[in-house]
Design a protein around this nucleic acid. Structure first.
Length: 344
DNA sequence: AAACGGAGCAACCGCAGGTAT
DNA sequence: AATACCTGCGGTTGCTCCGTT
């Protein structure tokens, strides 16, 4: 299909709108109504592209816009909706009267995604499974966030000019991403210890941080993580006889028993190596397990636990009975203990 | 007081779907 | 059927403000 430029840019003004331009546009739309954006600038006497006029009206001049800061309620709504809808800003905006998709998108990119990244950067929860009411069986771990970031990076690489049909295939794409992630995790994590060079995910790569900041890693599952994060931490800390859970300042890792991890903290050294590593070391069932929260994909219970179950089986620490059985049951117990299920 | 850097936000860009010709 | 146009969406850019050095 042929596609002409939306407007002839020669001689048209760009950049910030002046008060006079706003008044002209608002007056014109008040008299003639919205629509016919292409012809609007000419008719209204504006040296602007029609798209620019439309954007200005929708994002700034509309009377029904709510000005001011995003409230906590709105923020919570955004987080929840984003967890469900992904980067479909117009849909999210549809649930927030007076807010525009652009406003929500900016708010997400500048506030929420950063917070999500901050949380993910380096928080490792040490859980002594032996203290769990449901028993002390080790459950296994999950892929580091680096895998997810790599997937996002790969996605970005494929994007560019081929970024077609994104609206229609968004759901299928998400499904495919999930599938791809699962496959990658199977390939990269299941048979070898995760590469976590220092303090686990505190040393998350700069690529990941950048990806997060740009919203690339802000697909649903990770926002679930954001939504649950503080609740998880507080619930775990508050629970009587709760598993060990210590998070150092600024997200630094804390060894459950010996304070800040330092040399022997998270990652390759000390008792808080990743689960696969611990398994290689032959630690018994009472060993402390690090749960790298950045590796948890808690968009859905099945998605969350299948890899855990998989690792579990692979390491054959506790043989998984055919068709589920004990392994599943124990996992459910752990889930309940950690107050997860109510939030899923 | 000036320089610098980060955060926030407004606006632009490119693409897709739908519709008219 | 092919083309042209309109509208809307999401990603990205770059300007402005403000705090820090």
């Amino acid at each position: 299909m042929g596609r002409a430029p939306c407007c002839e840019k020669v001689g048209l003004k760009q950049g910030r709108w002046t008060k006079e331009e706003d008044e002209i546009l608002a007056r014109y739309i008040k008299e003639h109504g919205e629509g016919s954006w292409r012809s609007l600038p000419k008719n209204a006497g504006l040296l602007r592209c029609g798209k620019s006029c439309r954007l200005r009206w929708i994002n700034y001049l509309r009377a029904d816009l709510k000005r001011g800061n995003i409230t906590e309620e709105e923020e919570e709504m955004i987080i929840k909706l984003h967890a469900t809808l992904g980067n479909r800003w117009s849909l999210i905006a549809g649930h927030l009267p007076g807010r525009t998709d652009n406003e929500i998108k900016n708010y997400w990119n500048s506030h929420l995604s950063r917070r999500a990244a901050d949380f993910r950067d380096g928080i490792v929860v040490n859980i002594d499974l032996s203290r769990l009411p449901g028993g002390g069986k080790r459950r296994g771990g999950r892929a580091s966030r680096g895998i997810l970031a790599a997937a996002a990076k790969e996605k970005k690489g494929k994007k560019g000019k081929d970024d077609k049909g994104k609206n229609n295939v968004a759901e299928a794409e998400q499904q495919q991403q999930l599938k791809d992630r699962e496959e990658e995790e199977d390939a990269n994590v299941s048979t070898t210890p995760r590469p976590q060079p220092d303090c686990a995910t505190a040393a998350q790569s700069e690529e990941q941080a950048q990806a997060s900041a740009s919203g690339l890693t802000s697909d649903g599952p990770e926002e679930d993580l954001l939504a649950l994060s503080e609740e998880m931490v507080s619930a775990l800390l508050a629970a009587p006889g709760s598993p060990k859970l210590e998070v150092g300042p600024d997200g630094s890792c804390m060894d459950s028993d010996s304070g800040p991890s330092g040399d022997s903290g998270c990652g390759s050294g000390g008792p808080s190596g990743d689960v696969a590593h611990e398994l290689d070391l032959g630690l018994d069932d009472k060993a402390i397990m690090d749960w790298d929260l950045m590796g948890l994909d808690i968009s859905a219970a099945d998605d969350m636990w299948d890899p855990l179950l998989w690792d579990y089986d692979d390491e054959t620490l506790v043989p998984e009975p055919a068709g589920g059985g004990e392994g599943h049951q124990q996992q459910d117990e752990v889930m309940s203990d950690l107050f997860f299920l109510d939030n899923l």
